[in-house]
Design a protein around this nucleic acid. Structure first.
Lengths: 191, 191
DNA sequence: TGTTCCATGTAATTCGTTACATGATTAA
DNA sequence: TTAATCATGTAACGAATTACATGGAACA
């Protein structure tokens, strides 16, 4: 059982989900495609960590709703206190940012603008998730307590929002520098 | 040529480095082991994107100092304006955080404390890098301009510092919540 | 009429990690 | 004396992406 398998169990420990939902909802924590998740769910089922009920839908494809078993919960609990690996980050934009002085100013601005747009979308999604979580838990202003199964989701959404905001601030800061240098060129064109 | 290959070229566009140095210095942007980097450098050399000079050292193993060629620079420049892929994040701690309500309170605190220690180390390293960059560029207080080859490194270090600080703030915030709930138990033991 | 969403799966390929290999120097 | 740093490489394995495959509903 690899780390992603434990991640799937982690999501299922809060509430049952389909493979499709797991694929979508695990993204902010652990990037994975559906082609990786479906085979792992089948393995977890063989191991007795999860079970599923097949639901036939009209107007939509059939689906399997997975839930965690006692065996799965035990596996999760024994994995939890183990030391977590360092987070993995691979960010192509940062590689480009490293040699940004090679790019033409408007290319540079375009790259940063794209990143800004991306994280504006992320931020909107995270805010929507926070609103939905408050609906789900029935807490309009307070926060779910440590023992609530939604506690983890709550602290992660708050983290994601702060992270997206920081990303946007960095983009603004870089854009300002780019604009300043650009402005100087416009005011003082080269002789 | 994959993304990591371009990343190596990006680092080499600022100054020549050994494979070992490339392996270390690309980590904050793109996690990779030496076993992945050395073969890529050999390929880049075959493609004419980089060249190296072998340096024999006394008291230390021999090394190859790689530098970028005109061909490599051209490749870099044509890659730069292409749209950057979304960043990849895989963070085991966040998977554990998601089901933190399953952990015993002291296990939970231990997990967060470990993360805090990790990023305290990161923060110290980034601050040291900022100081070294200021030495290298000779700028004691100002920032390298957009056209400086150190501009990219500068904005990335600033970004990394802000990111590490945010991570530490999140850890503190979570720890506070954990401590409060713990405190309540201590004050009001269950009947 | 083309794209996105829902929903699941497999196969081929590339990417990334771990392990194997060597070896001297220095700090704890 | 055990580990870490410097320094390079290859081989085996596991993990992750892309492509192949299907199909109806809603939306623009």
């Amino acid at each position: 059982m690899n780390t992603l398998s434990y991640g799937l169990l982690a999501l299922l420990s809060v509430k049952p989900r389909t493979g499709y939902e797991l694929m979508q909802q695990i993204q902010p924590l652990w990037r994975a495609k559906h082609s990786q998740i479906y085979p792992l769910l089948a393995k977890l089922e063989q191991l007795g960590c999860v079970r599923f009920v097949q639901v036939t839908q009209k107007e939509k494809p059939d689906k399997k709703i997975y839930s965690i078993t006692e065996t799965g919960l035990a596996k999760l609990r024994s994995w939890l206190p183990e030391q977590a690996d360092e987070p993995v980050k691979r960010d192509e934009l940062l590689l480009k940012a490293y040699c940004l002085s090679l790019a033409e100013p408007r290319q540079a601005r375009h790259l940063i603008a794209e990143r800004r747009a991306l994280f504006q979308n992320h931020l909107a999604k995270y805010n929507a998730q926070l609103a939905e979580l408050k609906r789900e838990t029935g807490l309009s202003d307070g926060e779910p307590g440590l023992r609530s199964p939604y506690f983890g989701n709550y602290i992660l959404i708050k983290r994601a929002i702060a992270g997206a905001q920081l990303e946007l601030e960095w983009c603004s800061w870089v854009m300002h520098i780019l604009d300043e240098e650009q402005g100087q060129c416009a005011e003082r064109p080269e002789p």
